[in-house]
Nucleic acid binder design. Structure first.
Length: 857
RNA sequence: GCCCGGGUGGCGGAAUGGUAUACGCAACAGACUUAAAAUCUGUGCUCCGUAAGGAAGUGUGGGUUCGAGUCCCACCCCGGGCACCA
């Protein structure tokens, strides 16, 4: 039932149709159907306290248009929404107020959900998910256990930001200018026990499979760069003092070995201490201390001012026996390669700078091109000063030198990745608890006797103060492991999360069969299945929940599995995924990793999670600057909905420019699309709200031009939705509505068809006018109109006459006019004639129906 | 420094190698109105010209082509990302 609104009262119309869709479950994805599926997904939001930003509805409108279009085309569409609700702000709020982060999170969800619903998106709310819901994170924990079982999770000490004043670990974003964001206290790097996921085991496949996905090239390249594969060789240099064994380095340029004039160790390299001669010890110690105190940021800032200290030790170059001094410098990182390099100052910018600074020798071994004779030379060339290899092209020399050294056992070809294993734990409260209990060696041995099949081949252990602890997973039947209530959300103060203070939850008698627990302060229950354990106090990072949520949407209420095999088989992975480019690397890489693990386990049928990806561009402030919270320039969707309606907002966001472009927000532009909708309203209805008398039941009132334009519009809008070019789709609809306005009459059928084309963009006004013009049922159920190609052809067309490529005139001519006739017309054209006078015709280019170019001397 | 984008009227932008500036905003003029708003009609979007018309023109310089905003080379500027990765 439509409203009785006389004029375009969007404040009445929009809520009316939203509740109509709600009541009719209009957007429910069907679970048993023979229809083809289409799965279109938004990157789900973090429910922040400040609510929806204008950037959110941009991407959401784009996916909603696609979803509505695909439904009209007969697809069974899955278009879900949920909440990525673990996260730092809720935890900080809890620390400040002492209330449980869950209550704050739920309040935020209520607010942001209200905002999203007011936009009229066609989400299937019955599939809503929340990553903080134990029914959801039960499966996040379950997936972690699969990684654990496969040996892809381990525990290690890793450096994190530590604030001695606040006695807490800080995230990168909690540090501003090298100080804590809260209080401005100094911070330092500190090694803490962390869970790490072995994403590097998938580096090759994460790289190779990028070729199979339809993603923006820039995003693929960013992932490639992040994975950072490089081929080279690990080369062994003997040390002059053989008691410390050989020194291994990684190089991508073994062909430049003859140019190695010194070596560099990272300050953290284990050989630094043993190698340093007594005379250099104090200088080295001072340098290491300084380097250790530096943040990565400071090390980066000093990029242009290389520093280092000589250890006093020498190595022997395996290729020519040369004696090479060994230095320590912080431009070499312990985390990449072997933490040691051979320096070739003639052919590496950093080595050159360092050698210049410390007056180390520079030996050129690659002949520079004639154009570029300055050192350092990093280009291609043939080898010089390189013994038997002199004269070889460098790629050939690289192979030969590596192979020759390999026969002596002094080198092996290797591949290195920049990608590091993923630090997967946080010393926080508000995250998924790890379903892990730490046991002593004897209890672990007893436990795994009963628990074959869900522990890794090599136990995950951690040694502290001489005692080794063994990680035993909870049995899957004991999931979810929920967060206990805590007295305080403040961290423990010793580097552990607030969970470390909850002794009765932490220190337990643990039933290795069932996962049941009893506080350790109680007597140990009877039976041989009970062992003394301590729970893991770390929680998972926010990424965990977002790594697999797209799978849960296919079967969100399943309590037997993260999703049923039938659901996974039918829905598969999203056909279209839209979200911000800020997630180009981390979220997308982590999700791909988890997906591939699940694929290897046979849990999902495809090897890649997101076949087609698109990034919406950022909406900038009116001044073209970023809209930031601090600048107070944020435009809220709520305000625009109140003043112009959501149909206008949706249309405007799409009309601003190409979806992927960064676009400034211009409030005056909103009026333009709002007028467009009002115009459509007036063409359909008169001032009393009755059908406009110019709308006729007689189809013959439509001019040929109007019919042609209608079919052009159907074609163009459909094509533009497919290619996500919504701005030009809207232009086309404006052209059509302008034509209708100028026409003395329009047929009801034409108007209804136009409303169908408009419906994905402005669904509320389309439903309203559809019903008031007598359209059958909801416009959602009307099949997408097909254009008639025969209506698009013209009998005559404007042919452009050019002389020497310059537009000189044009004329309406029959389509497929032969060239000689076209040429005759052009020669007779009053505007073209003067440009031909006295000239010799050299050539004629004729593109029928388009252009006739006369080339004259 | 490297890697990605991008530079078109006053503004947002459009343009399979084929009429540059569609569509919209803003501006100006006119109609309607007592008036305003709304709506409608029209105008131009640089320069010369009263006009008809002509010339120039898509960051700069060159090139390919009958024809270049579009392809190639070099450069300038703006935005974003990454960064001592051996």
């Amino acid at each position: 039932m439509a409203t009785k609104s006389k004029d375009y009262n969007f404040l009445e119309i929009e809520p009316h149709w939203q509740s109509f869709w709600d009541k009719n479950h209009s957007f429910r994805a069907e679970s048993s159907t023979t229809k083809p599926k289409y799965y279109v997904l938004d990157m789900f939001p973090y429910p922040s306290g400040s609510g929806l930003h204008i950037g959110h509805p941009e991407g959401y409108t784009a996916t909603d248009i696609v979803a509505r279009y695909k439904r009209a085309q007969g697809f069974n569409v899955l278009h879900p929404m949920g909440w990525d609700a673990f996260g730092l702000p809720a935890e900080q709020h809890a620390v400040k107020t002492g209330t449980h982060p869950s209550s704050n999170t739920q309040n935020n969800i209520v607010n942001i959900k209200r905002q999203i619903k007011a936009l009229g998106f066609s989400y299937d709310w019955e599939r809503e998910i929340d990553t903080t819901d134990p029914k959801y994170f039960r499966w996040t924990q379950w997936i972690f256990l699969q990684l654990f079982k496969k040996g892809l999770a381990y525990v290690d000490k890793r450096p994190v930001w530590w604030c001695p004043e606040l006695r807490t670990v800080l995230a990168n974003e909690e540090i501003v200018d090298g100080k804590s964001e809260v209080g401005g206290f100094p911070v330092e790097r500190r090694n803490l026990r962390q869970w790490v996921l072995r994403i590097t085991a998938y580096a090759d496949r994460l790289l190779a499979d990028l070729k199979d996905v339809d993603w923006p090239d820039s995003t693929k390249r960013m992932q490639e760069a992040w994975i950072g594969r490089s081929e080279g060789a690990e080369v062994q240099f003997d040390l002059e003092d053989k008691s410390h064994g050989p020194l291994k380095i990684f190089t991508t340029r073994p062909d430049t070995l003859y140019g190695c004039t010194y070596m560099v160790l990272a300050p953290e390299h284990p050989l630094v201490d043993p190698l340093t001669t007594p005379g250099q010890k104090s200088a080295i110690d001072a340098y290491r201390k300084k380097a250790a105190g530096k943040s990565d940021l400071e090390r980066t800032d000093l990029a242009k001012d290389k520093s280092g200290v000589f250890t006093g030790a020498y190595a022997i170059n395996p290729i020519n026996g040369a004696r090479v001094p060994i230095w320590v410098a912080d431009y070499v990182l312990m985390g990449y390669g072997t933490g040691a390099i051979m320096a070739v100052p003639a052919h590496d910018d950093r080595d050159y700078e360092f050698a210049q600074h410390y007056s180390l020798p520079i030996v050129q071994v690659i002949a520079a091109s004639e154009a570029e004779t300055k050192l350092p030379y990093t280009g291609d060339g043939k080898l010089v000063h390189s013994g038997p290899y002199t004269g070889l092209d460098w790629p050939e020399a690289k192979k030969r030198i590596t192979a020759d050294l390999a026969t002596k056992g002094a080198a092996k070809a290797t591949v290195n990745f920049k990608l590091r294993d993923w630090l997967f734990s946080r010393q926080r409260y508000w995250g998924e608890p790890f379903p892990i209990v730490w046991l002593n060696a004897a209890d672990y041995a007893r436990a795994i006797a009963k628990r074959t099949g869900d522990v890794p081949a090599t136990p995950v252990t951690f040694t502290s103060e001489g005692v080794t602890h063994y990680a035993l997973p909870l049995p899957p039947s004991a999931l979810p492991l929920e967060l206990p209530d805590v007295q305080s959300y403040l961290p423990s103060g010793n580097g552990e999360s607030p969970l470390a203070n909850e002794t009765s939850w932490l220190e337990i008698w643990f039933n290795v069969d069932t996962g049941a627990a009893v506080p350790a302060s109680n007597p140990c229950p009877a039976g041989d299945v009970w062992v003394r354990g301590r729970r893991e106090t770390n929680t998972m990072p926010q990424w965990a929940g977002s790594c697999w949520y797209y799978l849960r949407f296919t079967d969100p209420k399943n309590s037997q599995a993260f999703a049923s095999q039938e659901a996974l088989k039918y829905w598969g992975v999203p056909d279209l995924y839209i979200g911000g480019a800020e997630h180009a690397v981390l979220h997308l890489l982590y999700a791909r990793f988890w997906h591939k693990v699940l694929f290897d386990l046979g849990e999902v049928p495809q090897s890649e999670p997101f076949t087609k990806l698109f990034h919406q561009g950022m909406i900038l402030g009116e001044d073209g600057e970023k809209m930031s919270k601090s600048s107070g320039k944020g435009v809220t969707p709520d305000a625009v909905i109140a003043s112009h309606g959501t149909d206008t907002l949706r249309l405007y966001l799409m009309f601003l420019g190409p979806l992927e472009a960064q676009k400034p927000w211009n409030p005056q532009g909103i009026e333009g699309v709002h007028r467009f909708l009002q115009k459509i309203w007036r063409e359909c209805l008169d001032v009393e709200g009755a059908v406009n008398p110019k709308v006729s039941d007689d189809p013959s009132v439509d001019s040929t031009e109007l019919i042609k334009l209608l079919h052009e519009t159907i074609k163009k809008v459909g094509e533009n939705i497919e290619t996500l070019r919504f701005n030009t789709a809207i232009s086309q609809m404006m052209i059509f509505s302008n034509a209708v306005q100028k026409a003395p009459a329009v047929s009801r059928a034409t108007m209804l068809t136009f409303l169908q084309v408009l419906a994905p963009f402005a669904p509320h006004i389309a439903e309203e006018l559809w019903e008031r013009l007598g359209g059958a049922g909801s416009i959602l159920r009307a099949p997408w109109p097909k254009y008639d190609a025969s209506k698009l052809v013209n009998d005559s067309v404007k042919l452009v006459f050019q002389v020497n490529g310059k537009h000189r005139g044009d004329q309406l001519v029959p389509i497929n006019l032969p060239q000689d006739e076209a040429l005759a017309l052009a020669r007779g054209n009053a505007k073209v004639m003067p440009h031909l006078e006295g000239k010799t015709l050299k050539r004629v280019i004729y593109v029928p129906g388009r252009i006739l170019n006369i080339v004259v001397e």
